[in-house]
Structures are given as C-alpha cells and as structure tokens.
Design a protein around this nucleic acid. Structure first.
Lengths: 329, 329
DNA sequence: TCCTGCGATGTAATCGATTACACGACGTCG
DNA sequence: CGACGTCGTGTAATCGATTACATCGCAGGA
C-alpha cells in the first residue's frame, strides 16, 4: 500500500519546496504561473492527496461537524441529517453522526476530542452539565433543554398547535383530545400548551391523554378513547407516528377515520401523504431546519467567530388531507 | 478558550515526561503504580483530552469509518446507520456519513483524505473506477455493483422473492404481478429474477411492471394495473414504499386491499406493521446487516489485516400480515 | 566484585502539512 | 545610481501525541 505519497514527494517531483506545493494547493494566486503548472502536473502524476490529520493538527480544526440525535433510525431525523450533510459537504466539511443516548462519558468526549469543529444537537434532553463542558460551538435544532441557553433553531410549536386546533374548530368540532408527547420533553410541552391555549381561545372542550410520540402510544390512546362515555370527535396527536398508531387501532376496532373521528398529526413525515387516509398534519420544514442550522454553524466556523446567540423560531403550516372532516350531527 | 491543554501540561503537573503520560493513558500496565496515580490525578486536574488529530497523524489511522448511502433520508438506511454507529461507537470509532450521489471527485476524495479507515458502502451503483482507486477497506452492504468484487453482505434477494411468490401461490393466486425496482439496480434485478423463477416453478401466470422503489411508482403501477382487461389478483412490489403507493392508489380508485387484490412488499420498514392494512412483506434484518458489516470491518481494522474477501448472503423471511388473503372465486 | 537483565522513565525523532520569516531578483522612482 | 517595494520561493518552526531507543537503578548470579 503506497499511501506514503507525501507533499515532499510532490515537491521533489516538481523540483520545488513543500511550501510551494502547499501554497499551490491552498492559495494558487501567490504562486508563479509556470511553477503552479509544474506542481499541478506533479500532483496529478503522483496521485497526491493531502493528509487531513496533518492539516487538521496544524490548523487546529477538524473540518467536520457532529450531529447528535437520540435516535438515528428515526425518519424525522433522517432528512434533517441528509440536508445537513449536503450543506456541509459542499462546504468541504464532513459530517459525523452519533447517538445522543450513549453513555455520558462518551458523549462528553465528543465535544473534546478535536474530531469535530461544531455540534448540531437534535436532543433537548441531554444534561446541561455535559453541554457546559463542551468547548465547541453548539446549535440546538428542533428541541432544547430549557435549563440551557445555547443558540437554537426550531419551529414555533405553540403556534403550530394552535393551527391544528383552529382547523378542528373551523370544522365544527367542540370536544377535542390531544395525545401528548413524553413528559419532560420541551416539544411535547409546547405543543400541549399551544393546544390548550388554542382550545381556550376557541371555547373548545379540551382534554389531554398521555403519550410518547410512538405508534404504540397512539394505539393505547385509541383504546382509552373508545372507552370514554362521551368521546371527543377530534384528536390532535403530538406526532405523526402517534396519529398513525391511533388511526390503525381505530381501524382494528372497527371505527373509521375521518368518519368516526378526525385526526391531526404533527411533523408531516413522508408517509403522511400516503397513509390511508392521507394524514392532515402540521408540516415541519425539515429541509429548511437542517439547512439553516448547518449554514449558521458553518458560517460561524469559516468566519472563525462564535455562533450568534439566541433562539430562532420559524413558521410551520398545516397541511389538510383526508384524516379530518366536518363534525357530523 | 483554553483548549491548549496539551500532554506536556499534564506531564508538567505530574512531574513526569510526556512519554510517561502517554503510556499511562494507552498502556497503564507498563507504568509504575505510584506514577500512574500521579498522572491520573494530573489528567483529572487539568481536564486533559487527547488531541485526536495529533494521534491520528502519528498512528496513521483515523479511528473513524465512513458510511456512504445514496439517500441518507431513506428510512431503510436509517436503522442500518444507527446500528453501525452503535457498534462503531462501542469500539471507540466514530462514524461519518455521506451521500454517495455527490459529485464523483468528492466521493473519490473520501477514500483518500485519511479521514476514514474504512468504508461501508450502501450503494451498488457507484462507478467501479472510483472504488478501485480507494485505498481503504470497503465492504458493500445490501447491494453491490456486479462489475466489482468487493467484500459484501446482503440478504438473499432471490430466495426472498421466491418466499413471496410461494405465499401468494399457497393462497391460491394464479395470476401475479411484480412491480420491479429501477433498471440496472442489482437488488431490483435479483428480486425480479427470483419472482420469475418462483412463478415458473409454481406454474403461475407472471408479469412485471416497471417501477423504481418509490411510492409514486407504486401508484403509477396501480393505475396501469386497474386498466388491465384480466387483472392479476396479487402483486409483489419490490419495496414497501412501492407497495404503499400501490395500495394508497387502489384505495383512491375505490378498490380495497386485500379484498380486491393481495399485496406483498419488500423490506418490512417500521410502518409496514401499522399501515392499513398491515403489510405482508419480506423482512430484511437491518440490524443484523448493519451489525455484521460493522463488526466485519472493525475486526479487520483493529487486527490490522485486510477484509476477508467474498460476499455473504443471509436469510430474510416473510412476515404475513393483512394485505394478502386467499384468492376469491 | 562485577556483570547481566529487567523494570521504569526520559530523550528525541517522527507523523505530514502549514506558514512566519527570510531572502534574492527585479523593477520603479526620486 | 541607490533605496525601496513587490513578487516568488525556500528554510525551518510548529501543531501534539506516540514510540524507538537510551538511560538509570537495582536485584540476583557467577
């Protein structure tokens, strides 16, 4: 394996110094035209590639960003990560991914080992002590820990929840149920509060069921819901998955959506449009979220300045499909 | 920012040489007990972390593996990547991800820039010229280019397709349709061939429609299918997404699955079990695939030997749910 | 007593690229 | 004609950890 093509080899082949080769590659303008051509030819001939470890060491940067998410298998994160990778890739940065639920020591090391220049954090439940010890720019995306105050970006979850409530109210529903997300999750909390606030404004009879974003919890909520004496006619689930679980369980129990109950989801995952019935849901602009976060972080890194502090909220909107309909009777 | 805690600082604090600190951290056994304790205390006190760029440079390795996939947002890849990350993480390796459809030069650089020690490739459509120039161990997972001969791991797609056909035949279906994957894709080809071979064995009347794994192509196939004079009573789609698209479109056109047509998918994505109807499909053991590939690569890396050549096929199985039923009339 | 061997530690070369600084050649301007 | 600036290039220090080799002290055997 002849990986040992060093910059010195190229320099020798071109009859120049290593400094000149390095300059030719990173800042061609300062090198004489003829020399530049000779060096380029030598690079071509030798098949030289920079050794990034050496460059990273010298420049004290890793040209890499780290994305931390609680569940990499999650569809929702998939597209965000893909977008981040795209933006980073075209800026010459590589993207590494890691599960934020790993052992605390390992997580903490990620912010110290010099393998990444910055972190995009998709998990609001990480201990603030860990975040505090990181010495890297961190941007929180989609969710965050209320105790910490890092730069962040997310959709306006409360406003989005109100959109869902308004839609149901407009359809004539008076008794509505929210299947919440897990306790302690900021997103879940904000959506729940948005739901309750919106319901109050519209004078709806609102109640909340426990949930945790999963399909299983949606199914569980459906079984509880069906047993109620005076069932709400509309449901707002804290996630699409949860909504799917609810709908599937209703179906199993012989009830139909939207004929027997209207359902609104949250996220607008890819399947939402192809589920039966196609799901009315809050659309989260995942590509925008991913892109904005990546751009913000990368801009700070390349301009070598700290991340602008502050949390930014962007609008989500409601996509009306077939899982909701006007209240009957 | 006091990131400049070098090994020398620890050495000074402990009153030893940098060599001793390094040894204490990487090979404690060779260091005297008392010295070891002093060094550990100094490490603790200073908050020292190794600089991986320096270590990587010296040791000529990156402690990182690269996962290349054509579409990181794809649910199917999500879980595989998550599993790879898990295995790699506990071996102390980091995982970087990149989109294999990026510009060729960028892709090629990934195998040269020293940022990764090995590659797990989830894309069978990459030009073999590029693979050939990489100087890293590569393992192809799930699909591969027939022209290249790299170590690989996948399920036995032909056998899996035959399972699907057998299931439909057992249910009494005599006329079956396969919605194929994209032209030129090895997976698509193998599944199609398995379908045709299985149909021949069982004496079924088999036909094939074009597709490309997407929901849109499934929907398209549904519209073509419904227009047929003598419609096949069962469909085997080359992917779950495609099956969902087919089912959703049938639904829109007023037909029901499985009452009017039985559908078998391929992959067993998370939603398959919660779709309406729950999808009968081929289960791909994604966790096993990811784990095996990661373990095989990591073992080769840590033992510093080349990857064992050869392609390995593992079994998939059929999961029978509600999208298939016995042929009526 | 002297030599050998071993365990613990230090010294310094090394990995490969970047870059501050120095230098020489050449042109311009007073 | 000399001073000075500019441009292109080379020399060598530097990033921070690892590790081959040297060194030292001491125990045990001849």
């Amino acid at each position: 394996m002849n990986k040992n093509i060093r910059i010195a080899d190229v320099a020798r082949a071109a009859g120049v110094s290593t400094a000149t080769v390095s300059r030719t590659l990173s800042n061609p303008a300062v090198v004489g035209v003829e020399t530049r051509a000779r060096v380029m030819a030598a690079v071509e001939a030798t098949g030289y590639r920079v050794n990034t470890a050496a460059r990273d060491l010298r420049q004290r940067r890793a040209r890499s960003i780290l994305v931390l998410a609680p569940n990499l298998a999650n569809t929702f994160f998939g597209r965000i990560i893909a977008t981040i990778q795209e933006v980073a890739g075209s800026a010459g940065l590589s993207v590494q991914v890691s599960d934020s639920r790993a052992e605390a020591g390992r997580i903490e090391a990620l912010g110290h080992d010099g393998r990444a220049d910055g972190i995009i954090l998709l998990d609001g439940s990480l201990a603030p002590e860990i975040l505090a010890r990181w010495r890297l720019p961190v941007i929180e995306l989609c969710e965050w820990n209320t105790r910490a105050t890092l730069p962040g970006l997310a959709i306006d979850n409360a406003a989005a929840a109100r959109l869902a409530v308004d839609h149901l109210a407009d359809l004539g529903h008076r008794k509505v149920l929210h299947i919440a997300g897990p306790e302690g999750n900021v997103l879940a909390l904000t959506r729940r509060e948005g739901f309750l606030a919106g319901s109050a404004t519209r004078g709806l009879d609102a109640s909340v069921a426990a949930g945790d974003f999963t399909m299983a919890s949606g199914a569980r909520a459906a079984r509880d819901w069906i047993a109620l004496p005076d069932r709400p006619s509309a449901v707002f689930a804290a996630s699409d998955e949860c909504a799917f679980g609810f709908i599937a369980e209703c179906h199993r129990m012989g009830l139909s959506v939207p004929d027997d109950v209207s359902v609104v989801g949250f996220d607008d995952v890819d399947f939402a449009d192809h589920y039966i019935p196609a799901l009315t849901t809050i659309h989260q602009p995942r590509v925008r979220l991913g892109r904005f976060a990546a751009q913000r972080l990368i801009a700070a890194l390349t301009e070598n300045r700290p991340l602008a502090p502050g949390r930014e909220l962007i609008d989500a909107h409601l996509v009306v499909r077939n899982s909701t309909r006007a209240y009957q009777r």
